[in-house]
Design a protein around this nucleic acid. Structure first.
Lengths: 343, 343
DNA sequence: TGGCGGCATTCACTGCAAACGTGTGCTGGC
DNA sequence: GCCAGCACACGTTTGCAGTGAATGCCGCCA
């Protein structure tokens, strides 16, 4: 299994993968001998290809159909063979313009990143918002909507904003709300969001005796405002691009893929892994488990200022995608996104 | 053209539409004679059908393929023949649960509405957020992020929240920000959002002489915060459902549809018309102009408290959809959504 | 021993023709 | 005005032969 590949075998495998990525059809020995300038005959290539098949790098749809790289081949390709091609100036420019830098809020920037990746790769661009659980508290504001109705707005250290209406069983003026907001914000500053609720409860328990009317109201408000923890959102841009891929001529596969994408849980789990890994991850075919037939790959990398990774950005496309180009595009997009978020 | 249809012709047309909606295939005279209990022979039906074809209500794909209702037939059906079928208790219940009522913010509620419509109809659910231009100002809050960086959060009367980071060329403390927020909020209260910027500019011009340091800062902040007007968002849930429809077996059509949906401009224009009409609108086939072949219809209705229509909610599906069921579902969803937004 | 030409074999794809089924239009009798 | 019957139209399916591309293996050669 773990046979080391000879140089020639490696070259042949590389050539097959390149050929397959560009044509999309199974590649045969003759075809290969013609297009990629090997100095050997097709028969020799056949021998090499047979070896590669034995080793699990190639597969053939049927006896006389040429060969197709397996997930394992892609894995090998991506890990060791690939020569990344840096985005050209035009692409860099488009990415920088595509991610609104000034005057746009976080979600707009994220969505812009997804959209530009879709535009440049012609595959689906995917972005997940920072996981609310991993953030730290920065400030909370309250806006009085009308009698007994207040809008709570929570801002975390990364500038992410969560808002949520709360119903009160006591009356409170906008002026009091401002004070409540100041009080709570001071109390909770820099606390991990996960601990916010606990902190409020503790304070509430403690103050119960020596109780200041306004403080009590503020704490109650805080509890209500943090009742339902917000969840991350996933933006997928350009799902329609799968329609272009010949591997989805089969409608059933396409349906299955759309179902998993719309349902999102599996995708979120995958993107989560990327974020925890803190570096680019590539899930090839079945590794991604996004489509039952393994026709789909995910290239994703975390974004965020310097050392903190906030969320993940990437591309979902056919396993047979141009990794050479896609990987650097995703990489660069994450960079730009990170620097935009930095300020 | 405007020939009045005989009672029988009307009944036959009605039967054909029902049959076509349920089977999806062109309906022939024999088939019709068998399934829908007409007391006449297929030959007679053929005569009637020929008349209906002359009048532009039916079409046939080719000579011997049975007949298919035209957009015009659907129009007639929806306008006069249709018997709406109120959502059953289970559906009502699902809709009410599907739209988060307490503790969810506006966008969550809207998205929930789209999702539940998708779930119940198996077509794409679509929702557009309130048009920001038509709202009125309620309050603005500022949160200091870090030196020279402030997050501006604008809340309108409908509880919609817009946030946006702004870069300052002067320093300001959180405390000053609170005062700025109070000052601006008072100044702009109940102003149509469209006039907010003008009002700030006017104030700035007027105060230039008698200038209070903080007021000037506040006004400047206000200007920066309202620099780029926010736009409405469109949520489309369940685009994958089009894959189920046999009329999209042709991949090219599907691609075209996805392109228009992803691009969104045409859809937004359409939904805008619905909102201006202030009542449910149904765009059938080519009327919707969402797919070049006219295979797609839109059923949409405005939502919002009482007399104000904020945005639009609806369903996009194949022209051959079950209007009888879809129309009341959309109607009821809009009702529930409106009442949720009311409080 | 590795490279390679040759050859039989496999298998998808294409084009074609025939058979089939469904539906139409029309005619003529009741 | 209704309708049974009939000739005709036309898309769809099926079977079949031909084509082309690829494979696997044998045996020769350096």
């Amino acid at each position: 299994m773990a046979e080391p590949l000879s140089d020639r075998a490696r070259d042949v495998l590389h050539a097959i993968i390149r050929e397959y990525i560009s044509t999309g059809g199974p590649v045969g020995s003759q075809q290969l001998a013609r297009t990629s300038g090997f100095e050997v005959s097709s028969a020799t290539l056949r021998n090499v290809m047979a070896d590669l098949e034995d080793l699990g790098y190639l597969d053939k749809p049927h006896t006389s159909a040429g060969r197709v790289p397996t997930d394992r081949a892609y894995r090998f390709y991506v890990d060791t063979l690939i020569r990344l091609r840096d985005p050209n100036p035009r692409e860099r420019d488009l990415i920088q313009r595509g991610i609104p830098s000034s005057g746009a809020n976080l979600e707009d920037a994220l969505q812009g990143a997804g959209r530009i990746l879709h535009f440049l790769t012609r595959h689906a661009g995917v972005v997940v918002t920072p996981r609310p659980t991993s953030g730290t508290f920065h400030r909370i504001e309250f806006v009085r909507l009308r009698e007994g109705r207040v809008l709570a707005i929570l801002v975390d250290q990364d500038g992410q904003v969560h808002n949520r209406p709360v119903a009160l069983d006591f009356e409170i003026s906008q002026e009091e709300l401002v004070r409540a907001s100041n009080y709570l914000s001071e109390l909770l500053e820099r606390l991990p969001l996960e601990q916010v609720r606990g902190r409020i409860e503790a304070e509430l328990a403690q103050d119960q005796a020596a109780y200041d009317q306004l403080e009590a109201k503020a704490l109650k408000l805080g509890l209500l405002a943090t009742g339902v923890p917000p969840t991350e959102k996933v933006f997928i841009e350009g799902t329609g691009s799968f329609l272009e891929a010949p591997e989805f001529a089969d409608i059933e596969r396409m349906k299955a893929l759309f179902r998993t994408l719309e349902e999102k849980t599996r995708l979120v789990a995958l993107l989560d892994r990327v974020q925890r890994a803190r570096e680019m991850q590539i899930f090839i075919g079945h590794e991604s488990d996004l489509s039952p037939g393994g026709e789909v790959s995910l290239v994703a990398t975390p974004y965020g200022p310097a050392d903190r990774s906030l969320g993940t950005v990437g591309v979902i496309g056919p396993t047979r995608m141009n990794y050479q180009r896609v990987i650097p595009l995703v990489q660069f997009t994450a960079q730009v996104l990170s620097s935009v978020l930095e300020d």
